[in-house]
Nucleic acid binder design. Structure first.
Length: 466
RNA sequence: GGCGCGGUGGCAGAAUGGCUAUGCAGAGGACUGCAAAUCCUUGUACGCCGGUUCGAUUCCGGCCCGUGCCUCCA
């Protein structure tokens, strides 16, 4: 049996994945702060962890995938002020949009999608634990995590505390004992959202919600914690500090999550796609341009998850071709059955994905299967196996092979008169029979104007949308 | 300034101490009334300089270049 391997950011090595509990795999990925439309960077993270979940499910019966919604944050408060809307209206709206966009990309909903505002009591409890353990202190209405109390701080991002201070570009707030200390709780003014707490009315800092929600829904330690590479520091570093220190695990960074997986970000013309540079693309905009969500998914999986991925029109058009080919072959071979593959056989088919989610290799495997399925010198028994392998790979990658027909005939869903198309094809066939090629070509042009491409094959003429 | 990542053929992008990645684009051929699709064949690589080795794109060192994090960010 091929072993599943992932690159663990905590050890900076590719490691064989060994579940804490083989009967139940537990996975957490940091989800979005909901104050705006999601962009392709959010999409990359979601697609990669959805794939990771699929891959784990091919080997383990139960996988719990938790991905949160952060619905209390200063950015949301700012947005509320700007628009004059209620905070809860904003978070509800953008949570719904996020989930719609993720579904369009072929992602399944997480097993659990906890909301930060439903966990304030647990956050307060954990902050109290940290104060009791001597890792946090109250100051001027704030509660801060005292970084010097945790000598192993910085182990994930690989930077010592001194290095951070040397490079710090932030002004050190007066209420901090140490420049590296970070906020667990902060006071809210009357017009700001807040919850009662032992330190007065206030709201949580940015990192505590993930520590609390992952622990509550998965238990500690859990198998895999992930997110975008830019969360490594400070977000994930601080999560580790909170969770390890709240439970007396100061000596073991892996007492929170065993394996850390970070995806690389998207670039545009070589530069990071980011809000500050203004070069980000919303998922919604790409979908509105008519690009299928599964095409976006393919594009996001076209490079190793760890590396930067450059977003371009050319990438989309390549992936459109690839998806069309996959779906076409699946439909063309529809009359060929499938067989149940043995566990060993499935392992071989999924070997690329088991090897640190090597999606480019999986794409190469798909291309090989497509070619073999279209060759004339392959027996139908062999094709039955090949087709089974192809469907397994497509399912695991989340490519929705069951949507093949719908995708290829998309035009007929709305405006197209299917009967008229068939009538014109029949007319053209008659014209061809009579060697009236001028008439046949005129009919082809007419259909082309309707958005229909004809394909003459040995079994007759078929059509698809342009 | 500190820490990290990467430099592969026209483009995108993997693996690998010696043997074809794959895809897109290009060239030639088959098929086709036309068109599309498909199939067959095919060219072009491994940033620079040293080292280790029988042999390095792959390991080690130096250099150059690009890029990311250190501040909200997937």
């Amino acid at each position: 049996m091929a072993q599943i391997q992932f690159t663990n950011s905590l050890t900076r090595k590719k490691e064989v994945f060994e579940p804490l509990d083989p009967t139940h795999i537990r996975l957490y990925a940091c989800g979005p702060t909901v104050y705006d439309y999601a962009h392709l960077g959010n999409a990359r993270m979601a697609v990669i962890f959805d794939l990771l979940r699929n891959v784990l499910e091919t080997r383990y019966e139960k996988v719990t995938y938790v991905s949160n919604i952060t619905d209390i944050d200063d950015k949301i408060m700012t947005r509320a002020k700007e628009t004059g809307k209620d905070i809860s209206d904003i978070t509800k709206l953008y949570t719904a949009i996020y989930n719609e966009d993720m579904a369009a990309l072929g992602n399944r909903a997480p097993t659990i999608q906890p909301h930060a505002t439903d966990h304030v009591a647990e956050m307060i409890a954990q902050i109290e634990q940290l104060i009791d353990a001597g890792h946090a202190y109250e100051s001027d209405g704030h509660v801060l995590f005292h970084v010097p109390s945790f000598p192993k701080y910085g182990g994930l991002s690989g930077r010592s505390r001194d290095e951070q201070i040397a490079g710090a570009r932030v002004e050190v707030a007066s209420y901090k004992k140490d420049a590296a200390d970070f906020v667990l709780w902060k006071p809210s003014s009357e017009d700001e959202p807040g919850w009662p707490s032992p330190w007065g009315r206030g709201r949580p800092g940015w990192h505590i919600e993930c520590s609390v929600m992952s622990e509550k829904h998965l238990g500690l330690p859990f198998d895999i914690h992930g997110g975008g590479a830019d969360l490594k520091f400070p977000h994930h570093e601080n999560e580790i500090a909170q969770s390890c220190c709240a439970h007396g695990n100061e000596g073991d960074l892996s007492a929170f999550a065993k394996t850390w997986i970070h995806n690389g970000f998207l670039t545009v013309e070589g530069e990071k796609m980011s809000k500050s540079l203004g070069n980000f693309t919303l998922i919604r905009d790409v979908l509105d341009e008519g690009v299928d969500g599964i095409v976006i998914r393919l594009a996001l999986l076209s490079a190793s998850y760890k590396k930067p991925l450059d977003w371009s029109k050319e990438l989309i058009s390549r992936m459109e071709k690839m998806l069309k080919r996959i779906y076409t072959v699946i439909l063309d071979t529809a009359e060929i059955g499938t067989i149940d593959l043995s566990e060993t056989h499935k392992n071989d088919v999924l070997a690329a994905l088991y090897n640190d989610l090597n999606t480019p290799q999986a794409f190469a495997d798909i291309h090989r299967l497509l070619s073999d399925l279209e060759r004339g010198d392959v027996s139908s028994e062999d094709k039955e196996v090949l087709r089974s392998e192809l469907l397994l790979l497509c399912d695991t990658l989340g490519l929705k092979p069951e949507n093949a027909e719908n995708y290829l005939n998309k035009a007929d869903a709305s405006t197209l008169d299917k009967a008229l198309v068939q009538k014109l094809i029949t007319e053209r066939d008659a014209a061809k029979q009579n060697k009236d090629y001028a008439r046949a070509d005129a009919l082809r042009d007419e259909l082309k104007d309707m958005g229909i491409a004809l394909k003459d094959g040995p079994e007759g003429t078929t059509w698809e949308r342009l």
